[in-house]
Design a protein around this nucleic acid. Structure first.
Lengths: 196, 196
DNA sequence: TCAAATAATAAACCTAGGTTAATGTTGTTA
DNA sequence: TAACAACATTAACCTAGGTTTATTATTTGA
């Protein structure tokens, strides 16, 4: 592991607010992540291909995007450093990913092999519990999103997005925000015009 | 535990296709669930109230519904025997539930105290792993739903619902299907008329 | 620093689905 | 089995957001 500071960040993140895992537990792990660099526009994982890896983002931010059969883009979500990233479905079910993960920025990340990681996790109850908490949070976020799509207007979803994503709201193209909240860029433009 | 056959079902379910847990691990557990009966229309948990319990449905089926500030009903999902049920958010975060769970049928279920259950799970790695798998599946389902709301028409969502829910599709009122796929009963009626 | 590409906005028009209100159609229960 | 309630359908109308096509910023990169 050559990146001293990011590794500290990583440990700190896992130990910290989100996952609350014991530092000692983590150090017992013999993890050998690869340090990877991606340039803006490059893909960390590719829709339709296996993705048995998960990432810890050390620097930069990414989006999850899927392209439908009709060629329509949908930005499922965003992730940014310090934080984790990957396709839960592709990793855990060993199937092809339904989305790509694209760097929106120059990205530095640690790449973990999921099968190895998962195997080791089984012998580390603290880590397993942390993974649990992570999944719970991910699920709850999707639940909130489900609710938003059914009960809220596009305008409300836009305002909520701005509110909940202060770190990236001014750094990503509006068309990505539009496709994230499930509308076209034209509709978002109308909303923005109405709001000002 | 007085219900012999359901308990067998329960164990079998947890051991079985979904969670793949070892029967011996389960038996080590000293779980003392309450056996509960609910009549059609009664609520297992109530929106806005704490819900530190999870349920194993032995018989019958339920729906998760939330009512918005404007009084609009949304049927988040359905669950049926044999299977589990509860509010992940309310259980794990110890907050009030954002939805109610309502019996659509006469329901028999086992009620577990979440804090006790979770505490015991920590010492049973096999069970913790099973809970993980469950969360992964729950997350993936929500991901699919998110995708459906953004990329599919109401008609497609209706057809998908029928296809994926053979056990309940003919046993629940259409208005619940409508509110589950995010449209009004009127719109669903139009769709059904168009389809025949 | 000037093209060329990409992003954002705007206008005109269209459509899926919401809303309201009326009318059948089931299902309960007294 | 009558009467009431809940559910489902239909029609008429409305609106948010999609589509198409231009026009105007911004980036990007040579």
């Amino acid at each position: 592991m050559s990146l001293q500071i990011p590794m500290e960040d990583f440990v700190h993140y896992f130990l910290g607010n989100n996952l609350n895992i014991d530092k000692a537990d983590f150090d017992k792990f013999g993890l050998k992540p690869k340090v990877k660099h991606y340039q803006k526009g490059q893909q960390l994982i590719i829709q339709g291909q296996p993705a048995p890896t998960f990432f810890f983002l050390v620097k930069g931010f990414v989006r999850y995007l899927s392209v439908s059969a009709e060629g329509k883009e949908f930005t499922q979500s965003f992730a940014y450093a310090p934080g984790i990233s990957g396709s839960t479905r592709a990793m855990t079910k060993n199937v092809n990913s339904l989305f790509s993960i694209e760097a929106l920025d120059d990205v530095i990340c640690l790449e973990f092999d999921w099968p190895v990681f998962f195997e080791q996790m089984k012998s580390q109850p603290g880590f397993m519990a942390a993974y649990n908490r992570l999944l719970e949070n991910m699920f709850i976020k999707k639940e909130e999103r489900e609710y938003a799509f059914v009960q809220q207007s596009a305008e409300q979803r836009y305002l909520t997005f701005l509110d909940k994503n202060p770190l990236i709201r001014d750094k990503i193209p509006l068309k990505m925000i539009a496709s994230h909240i499930g509308i076209t860029p034209i509709a978002l433009s109308r909303i923005r015009n109405r709001l000002k």
